[in-house]
Computed example of a mutant assay.
Amino acid sequence: MATIPGIYRHHDYTIAWISALPLEMAAAVAMLDERHPDLPTDLSDNNSYIFGSIHGHNIVIVCLPAGVYGTTSAAVIASQVQFTFKSIRFGLMVGIGGAVPSQGDIRLGDVVVSKPTRDYGGIVQYDYGKTLSNNRFERTGMLNKPPSAEHMVRSSNIPAILSDMVCRYPKMKDKFTYRGAEQDVLFEADYDHEDVESTCANCNPSRRKSRSDRGYDVPVIHYGLIASANQVMKSGRIRDQLANEFGILCFEMEAAGLMDNFPCLVIRGICDYADSHKNKQWQDYSSGSRTMTMTRFTGDLPTSVFLEQLSGS
């Protein structure tokens, strides 16, 4: 992907793509059809941007500062984006997340897309509320809905797109190769990680959950509620408790800081099961799979059509 010379101004960019991790940003940049020259920003804007286009839509990509995560950081990033780019029409929060395996057949490498319900706008901020008597916690407030979109559910073309990206960027082969079903291990919700090791080599294999083999390694796209908070979810017990209460499909740490002032469509590649066994083994692949969902297809829906539906045109 070469940088395309041209005259672009701040007002030419209508889509803001926000990533939480550098590896997520790298996957996003790899899928740009064109890379645009950098633009100057105001001294009050501390963000670093990458500019480009996908199917003719001009996109500005920004990442949270290294090592800085959470809803507050995301809110600051978004406010600076809106200050610098006045023509932004909608935002995309694209990254990795932890799945709730009890809510349908969600596997590592799958993708969850936020979808509003009758009571929630696609995102649940589960740590926002007030503590009442008897240590009862009451969640308060509602978050805005994402931009409206019609998602068509068809067979996924993500593997072919990942393969195409690897051909263009051979150095990414190891990062974005499917890890294999044998590496997708789920433990019982009440069984905690045995030690401080980064792998589960010493965890009790008898506490693994038995699941049928899908018979294919194509990522599945799921639509529903995403839980967001200023904390990492690493408890299978609390994960399932909250999921049963709200119908949550996955957990993440940034979207709640965006929705009220910068409504976004939230797309999360599943890299762990939001329990004490979580590790980084699937992060690269899951970053790639959710990027494919956004950049090319949502259920085989071409991005040009998908973005037009998001923007209401």
Rank of each mutant, 00 (worst) to 15 (best):
H222C: 01
N135W: 11
I4F: 13
L242Q: 04
R207N: 11
E150R: 08
D45K: 04
S87W: 01
P40H: 11
S133K: 10
E254R: 02
T117G: 09
S102N: 05
N204R: 11
R154E: 12
M292Y: 05
V76M: 15
K173I: 06
S19A: 13
D105C: 09
M152R: 10
D300H: 00
D240Y: 00
Q183S: 12
P146F: 01
H55K: 12
Y8R: 11
R208G: 09
I248L: 09
S228L: 01
S114K: 04
V112K: 02
S287K: 08
I77P: 02
G121N: 05
D195G: 14
E24T: 13
L108P: 02
D240L: 11
M25Q: 15
R89S: 11
R136G: 13
C167W: 07
A30T: 12
S286P: 09
H55W: 08
T199F: 07
E252H: 04
E150I: 09
A30Y: 08
D119G: 01
I4S: 13
A66Q: 11
G299N: 10
G257E: 07
A99F: 02
T71K: 01
T3L: 14
I123G: 00
M1S: 14
S133G: 10
G121P: 00
S48L: 12
I50M: 08
K280Y: 09
Q125M: 01
E34Y: 12
Q80R: 10
S210N: 14
D217A: 10
K173M: 07
G180N: 04
I221P: 01
T84L: 06
I15S: 03
S313K: 10
G215Y: 05
Q103E: 04
A189T: 11
K145H: 06
L265N: 06
M93I: 00
L23C: 14
H11R: 08
G236Q: 12
I77M: 15
S148A: 13
M292I: 03
P37A: 03
I77G: 05
W282T: 02
L225D: 12
P159M: 05
